[in-house]
């Protein structure tokens, strides 16, 4: 077992005496080499779970274990790829990728060789001297992935890494991420709000309910790789996940717009019956 969350709760203080219950009794287990997606509507606490595993945040109660060890703070065995990449704009691509390696007391030459290897894996071997602002969104995310991979982490945590990219770039990066996963056999936890993305990439999809966030259901994706979105298994699964996700969406929307809000309106149910029979 690579990652193990036991009865994790998280509350954030809100105002003076109030608090926001974000995560409730989360039990989550990820096996070594597994590719797991965490799917849920925005605000359901999926990024909070990732931050807890990364050690950037601490649970209010419960424990987080990685490799059987309790998580106490950030560590290089769990590297995060952030939605906005998080590349340092004052460093060029190569320096960004070697940043973590040099912290491991690796010699400069060795670090650069390893970084080149990582950059070639994401097809950016020719952009070592470029600065992040000179790259496109997709290229930045490739660099961020390379920066994480060269650290050789036990668990790769990905926080909606492709959410800000255009559709074409995303499709290409989906393919490449699958290839990287098959090649390296890393354990990956992938956060997303995109059902198709979750189904295309992962072996297991965990659906989260919201307010407070909890794990609602788990779906195993038994489709052959490379995944094809028109695969009947995926299409069926997408429908099932969608209908469950809609319940959660409705809950959020009702909280925001009041109880009168319904995601699916019914003409029969909503018809005004006050004047029924007036014409008789």
């Amino acid at each position: 077992m690579k990652v193990n969350l036991e009865q994790v709760n998280k509350t954030f203080p809100k105002g003076k005496n109030d608090s926001l219950h974000v995560l409730q009794d989360i039990d989550l287990k990820i096996e070594a080499g597994e590719f797991v997606s965490l799917l849920g509507p925005s605000g359901c606490g999926k990024s909070t779970i990732l931050n807890l595993i990364a050690g950037l945040d601490h649970p209010t109660s419960g424990d987080v274990y990685v490799n059987g060890q309790k998580v106490k703070g950030p560590g290089t065995d769990r590297v995060v790829v952030f939605q906005q990449g998080g590349l340092f704009p004052w460093m060029n691509v190569l320096d960004n990728v070697t940043y973590g390696l040099l912290l491991k007391n690796m010699s400069k030459k060795e670090a650069q060789e390893k970084a080149m290897e990582g950059l070639r894996m994401v097809h950016l071997g020719n952009f070592t001297k470029s600065f992040p602002h000179e790259l496109s969104g997709g290229m930045k995310q490739r660099v961020a992935i390379a920066r994480s991979l060269v650290m050789d982490p036990d668990v790769l945590l990905m926080d909606e890494p492709f959410a800000a990219l255009d559709e074409q770039t995303r499709i290409i990066l989906h393919q490449e991420l699958q290839e990287i996963w098959e090649k390296t056999g890393k354990t990956i936890l992938f956060i997303t709000h995109n059902i198709r993305e979750a189904l295309t990439l992962s072996e297991r999809v965990l659906l989260m309910s919201t307010r407070p966030g909890a794990i609602k259901n788990s779906f195993t994706v038994q489709a052959s790789r490379p995944r094809d979105p028109s695969d009947s298994v995926l299409v069926q699964l997408e429908k099932r996940v969608m209908s469950e996700l809609e319940e959660e969406m409705e809950k959020v929307l009702k909280e925001e717009f009041g109880d009168g809000y319904r995601l699916k309106t019914s003409a029969v149910r909503d018809r005004n019956r006050e004047h029924m029979g007036d014409h008789i």
Binding site: A54, G55, L56, P74, G75, T76, R78, V79, V80, F82, Q84, G86, L87, F88, Y99, G100, L103, K104, R147, M151
Partner: peptide, 21 residues
Amino acid sequence: SLYLNAARTLGSSGFHLARTV
């Protein structure tokens, strides 16, 4: 905080974090 978090997950802390980020 994105830069700080990124650096921390890559193993930076303390003086190194102050100097490099």
